[in-house]
Simulated scan of single mutants.
Amino acid sequence: MDKELVIIGTIHSNIKDLTNAPKMETEPGAVRAKIVIDPAYAQGLDSMAPGAQLEIFTWFHKAERDVLMVHPRGKTERPKRGVFTTRSPFRPNPIGLHRVTLVAIEEPLTLVIEPLEAIDGTPVIDIKPVPKGS
Protein backbone atom coordinates (compact mmCIF):
# COMPACT_ATOMS: atom_id res chain seq x y z
CA MET A 1 0.00 0.00 0.00
CA ASP A 2 1.58 3.29 -1.03
CA LYS A 3 -0.86 5.68 0.71
CA GLU A 4 0.31 7.78 3.60
CA LEU A 5 -1.31 9.82 6.34
CA VAL A 6 -1.87 13.42 5.20
CA ILE A 7 -2.07 16.45 7.47
CA ILE A 8 -4.95 18.66 6.29
CA GLY A 9 -4.65 21.40 8.91
CA THR A 10 -3.27 22.49 12.26
CA ILE A 11 -4.89 23.29 15.62
CA HIS A 12 -4.27 26.75 17.09
CA SER A 13 -5.19 26.76 20.77
CA ASN A 14 -4.19 28.42 24.02
CA ILE A 15 -3.51 24.95 25.52
CA LYS A 16 0.25 24.75 25.20
CA ASP A 17 1.26 21.45 26.83
CA LEU A 18 -0.06 18.01 27.73
CA THR A 19 0.06 18.57 31.48
CA ASN A 20 -2.50 21.40 31.26
CA ALA A 21 -4.75 19.77 28.70
CA PRO A 22 -8.11 18.35 29.82
CA LYS A 23 -8.58 14.63 29.08
CA MET A 24 -11.80 15.12 27.07
CA GLU A 25 -13.54 17.99 25.33
CA THR A 26 -16.40 17.77 27.88
CA GLU A 27 -14.11 18.55 30.85
CA PRO A 28 -13.36 22.00 32.28
CA GLY A 29 -10.48 23.60 30.42
CA ALA A 30 -11.54 22.63 26.92
CA VAL A 31 -11.35 25.77 24.82
CA ARG A 32 -12.48 27.55 21.69
CA ALA A 33 -9.77 26.84 19.14
CA LYS A 34 -9.04 27.28 15.46
CA ILE A 35 -8.14 24.85 12.72
CA VAL A 36 -6.14 26.40 9.90
CA ILE A 37 -6.74 24.25 6.82
CA ASP A 38 -3.96 23.66 4.29
CA PRO A 39 -5.00 25.51 1.06
CA ALA A 40 -4.64 22.26 -0.92
CA TYR A 41 -7.77 21.00 0.89
CA ALA A 42 -9.92 24.16 0.59
CA GLN A 43 -12.56 22.50 -1.61
CA GLY A 44 -13.22 19.99 1.18
CA LEU A 45 -14.79 22.80 3.22
CA ASP A 46 -17.56 23.39 0.65
CA SER A 47 -21.03 23.46 2.24
CA MET A 48 -19.73 23.80 5.82
CA ALA A 49 -21.74 26.19 7.95
CA PRO A 50 -21.55 27.49 11.51
CA GLY A 51 -23.58 25.44 13.97
CA ALA A 52 -22.53 22.12 12.43
CA GLN A 53 -21.45 19.34 14.75
CA LEU A 54 -18.13 17.88 13.62
CA GLU A 55 -15.81 15.06 14.54
CA ILE A 56 -12.19 16.16 14.26
CA PHE A 57 -9.49 13.52 13.90
CA THR A 58 -6.05 14.60 15.06
CA TRP A 59 -2.57 13.14 15.17
CA PHE A 60 -1.24 13.39 18.73
CA HIS A 61 2.28 14.13 17.55
CA LYS A 62 3.64 14.52 21.10
CA ALA A 63 2.15 11.30 22.44
CA GLU A 64 4.29 8.39 23.54
CA ARG A 65 3.77 5.54 21.06
CA ASP A 66 5.17 2.63 23.08
CA VAL A 67 2.67 2.84 25.97
CA LEU A 68 0.12 0.04 26.30
CA MET A 69 -1.15 0.64 29.86
CA VAL A 70 -1.95 3.90 31.67
CA HIS A 71 -3.48 5.15 34.89
CA PRO A 72 -6.99 6.33 33.87
CA ARG A 73 -7.15 10.14 33.74
CA GLY A 74 -3.48 10.18 34.79
CA LYS A 75 -4.42 9.45 38.41
CA THR A 76 -1.68 7.22 39.81
CA GLU A 77 -3.90 6.04 42.68
CA ARG A 78 -6.03 4.20 40.10
CA PRO A 79 -4.78 0.86 38.75
CA LYS A 80 -3.35 0.84 35.23
CA ARG A 81 -5.60 -0.20 32.32
CA GLY A 82 -4.91 -1.07 28.72
CA VAL A 83 -4.82 2.01 26.47
CA PHE A 84 -7.54 0.62 24.20
CA THR A 85 -10.02 1.01 27.09
CA THR A 86 -9.04 4.65 27.71
CA ARG A 87 -8.93 7.96 25.85
CA SER A 88 -5.27 8.48 26.66
CA PRO A 89 -3.24 10.13 23.88
CA PHE A 90 -0.47 7.61 24.60
CA ARG A 91 -0.95 4.56 22.34
CA PRO A 92 0.66 2.82 19.35
CA ASN A 93 -1.14 5.06 16.84
CA PRO A 94 -2.08 8.26 18.68
CA ILE A 95 -5.20 9.40 16.83
CA GLY A 96 -7.50 11.82 18.65
CA LEU A 97 -11.25 12.00 18.12
CA HIS A 98 -12.98 15.23 19.15
CA ARG A 99 -16.67 16.11 18.87
CA VAL A 100 -16.99 19.88 18.44
CA THR A 101 -19.30 22.60 17.19
CA LEU A 102 -18.29 24.77 14.25
CA VAL A 103 -18.68 28.30 15.63
CA ALA A 104 -17.47 30.31 12.63
CA ILE A 105 -15.48 30.15 9.42
CA GLU A 106 -12.80 32.80 9.10
CA GLU A 107 -10.60 33.59 6.16
CA PRO A 108 -8.17 32.37 5.15
CA LEU A 109 -9.37 28.78 5.59
CA THR A 110 -9.86 28.86 9.35
CA LEU A 111 -12.52 26.96 11.28
CA VAL A 112 -13.38 28.25 14.76
CA ILE A 113 -14.52 25.29 16.89
CA GLU A 114 -15.41 24.47 20.49
CA PRO A 115 -14.87 22.79 22.87
CA LEU A 116 -11.46 21.26 22.17
CA GLU A 117 -8.82 19.72 24.44
CA ALA A 118 -5.99 19.29 21.90
CA ILE A 119 -2.78 21.27 22.35
CA ASP A 120 -1.56 24.06 20.11
CA GLY A 121 0.16 22.78 16.96
CA THR A 122 -1.67 19.43 16.86
CA PRO A 123 -2.00 18.17 13.26
CA VAL A 124 -5.53 17.55 11.91
CA ILE A 125 -5.93 14.45 9.73
CA ASP A 126 -9.67 14.51 8.97
CA ILE A 127 -12.98 16.27 9.61
CA LYS A 128 -16.33 14.53 9.43
CA PRO A 129 -19.90 15.66 10.16
CA VAL A 130 -21.57 14.06 13.17
CA PRO A 131 -24.26 11.68 11.86
CA LYS A 132 -27.84 12.87 12.37
CA GLY A 133 -29.32 11.54 15.61
CA SER A 134 -25.93 10.98 17.28
Rank of each mutant, 00 (worst) to 15 (best):
L102C: 12
K23C: 08
T58V: 09
P129A: 07
I105Y: 05
D46S: 12
A30C: 15
V103Q: 14
A52H: 13
T122W: 00
A118L: 09
G29Q: 08
P115Q: 06
K23A: 13
M48D: 08
L116W: 01
G51Y: 02
A52S: 14
P89I: 04
I113V: 15
K75T: 03
R32I: 14
F60Q: 13
P39N: 02
I127H: 02
T19H: 11
I125H: 02
M24F: 13
M69W: 10
V103F: 09
I56Q: 01
E27R: 14
D17S: 15
K23E: 14
T122Q: 01
V130C: 09
P129N: 04
K75W: 03
P28L: 14
H98P: 00
G133S: 03
R99W: 11
L18V: 04
A104K: 13
R81D: 05
G74S: 12
K128G: 01
S88V: 13
E27Q: 15
L102Q: 08
P92I: 02
A118G: 05
E55I: 15
V31D: 09
T26G: 12
V67D: 03
E114Y: 12
A21T: 06
D46M: 08
A118W: 00
F90V: 03
A33P: 01
I35K: 00
P89Q: 06
A30Q: 12
P123G: 11
Y41W: 09
E114N: 11
E64L: 12
E107Q: 14
D120K: 10
G29L: 09
V100Q: 10
M48R: 11
P79V: 05
L111G: 00
P94H: 12
A21R: 04
D17Q: 15
T110V: 05
F90N: 15
P28V: 12
P89A: 09
G44P: 02
V130R: 06
D120E: 11
G133H: 00
L116S: 01
V112F: 05
A118M: 12
Q53T: 06
T122V: 04
I15A: 08
V130N: 06
G44R: 02
E55G: 02
K16F: 10
P39S: 09
A63C: 12
A104Y: 07
I113M: 06
P108R: 01
W59H: 12
D38A: 08
A104S: 13
A49D: 08
H71G: 07
T76A: 13
F84G: 02
D46A: 11
K16S: 10
R91Y: 00
I125Q: 04
K16A: 09
